[in-house]
């Protein structure tokens, strides 16, 4: 459906997007993740044709964005970040205008607006001026705008930012519902959201793709590594490290900043999924140290995200 080839964007000398390659299949819900300033919005803006790439190309259904950008824009619906709408118009007038520009036939406009207002919950605010709306309501109007001509591809830039938990749930529900037939690309920095709605997650950092996998595989990858948090009373940190290394060769013991006085804290990482808590306990039992904390943390999507986007 969408092929992104070696996409690069420079702002003067600053490289915002650095050679991204991506293929998005029909009917996929793709989540674009990354820290602030990673290049998510820039990538989406290039996908929608708002920005021209410095180099590289985007093909949508074999149409190149540099040549057929108008045809591509007809296939796409786009919700920009923070839904910047015309603030002096009424919601109804605004949606009518969008419908006309989107080429919906005059006699079909009322029925289409009715459908969208039911889908996005707009029926109460149709005759309010856009600048009287709260952020969440604007976001919904923006969503209706994006879905106006029932586009094959929906591009949503942080669709749930600034919404309350109920609205977030609603928008996710809408994304999942329409995602059954449509290709959706959306950006977010809420990981649980990506986990809950996406088929596939792409993590970008400093303009480069650092992970690109199905949500399930990424989660499996996350579960494979684990770490153990250990805190001890009356222990000399160096002795502890020496002792624990004898348990297994492939574990790594890191000293952490002590949280309390007289307590030495460590993080024990292992690349295998084996649980070492029992061995650690038995070893410590032989000494005169006492345990303040011994917990195992399996790596979550969060820690993967953190690891991949480190040094930002």
């Amino acid at each position: 459906m969408i092929q992104v080839k070696n996409l690069t964007k420079y702002y003067n000398n600053f490289c915002a997007v650095d050679g991204i390659n991506l293929e998005i299949k029909k009917g996929e819900i793709l989540g674009l993740l990354g820290p602030n300033g990673a290049g998510k919005t820039t990538t989406l803006r290039m996908l929608t044709g708002f920005f021209k790439p410095t180099s590289g190309d985007i093909l949508v259904k074999d149409l190149s964005i540099s040549e057929d950008s108008l045809k591509i824009k007809e296939l796409m619906g786009y919700l920009p970040e923070s839904a910047p709408l015309y603030h002096n118009m009424l919601v109804f007038d605004y949606l009518c205008y969008v419908a006309k520009v989107r080429g919906i036939k005059k006699e079909k406009i009322p029925s289409r607006l009715k459908e969208l207002s039911d889908l996005c919950g707009l029926s109460d605010i149709m005759h309010q001026s856009v600048d009287e709306l709260s952020k969440g309501l604007k976001q919904r109007v923006g969503l209706a705008h994006a879905m106006m001509n029932d586009p094959e591809i929906l591009i949503l830039d942080e669709p749930t930012s600034g919404l309350d938990p109920n609205q977030i749930a609603e928008i996710r529900e809408i994304i999942k519902r329409i995602g059954k037939e449509k290709t959706i690309v959306f950006s977010t920095h809420i990981l649980s959201e990506a986990e809950a709605t996406c088929d596939r997650i792409v993590i970008i950092n400093k303009g480069k793709i650092v992970a690109d996998d199905t949500t399930q595989k990424l989660k499996n990858r996350a579960a494979s590594g684990s770490s153990i948090n250990l805190s001890l009373y009356d222990a000399d940190p160096d002795d502890v490290v020496k002792l624990l290394r004898t348990i297994a060769p492939d574990i790594e013991v890191l000293k952490k900043e002590p949280v309390e006085k007289g307590v030495a804290s460590f993080e024990i990482q292992s690349s295998t999924s084996k649980d070492f808590r029992k061995q650690i306990y038995l070893k410590i039992k032989e000494t005169n140290w006492s345990i303040a904390q011994l917990t195992r943390e399996s790596q979550t999507l969060e820690s993967i995200f953190h690891e991949l986007t480190k040094g930002n």
């Binding site: 929608t48 708002f50 108008l70 920009p80 910047p84 015309y86 705008h145």
Partner: peptide, 14 residues
Amino acid sequence: NVGSYEILLTMPVS
């Protein structure tokens, strides 16, 4: 200034 320029340019208008 408002940002609606982005909306305008991503609609099918030249």
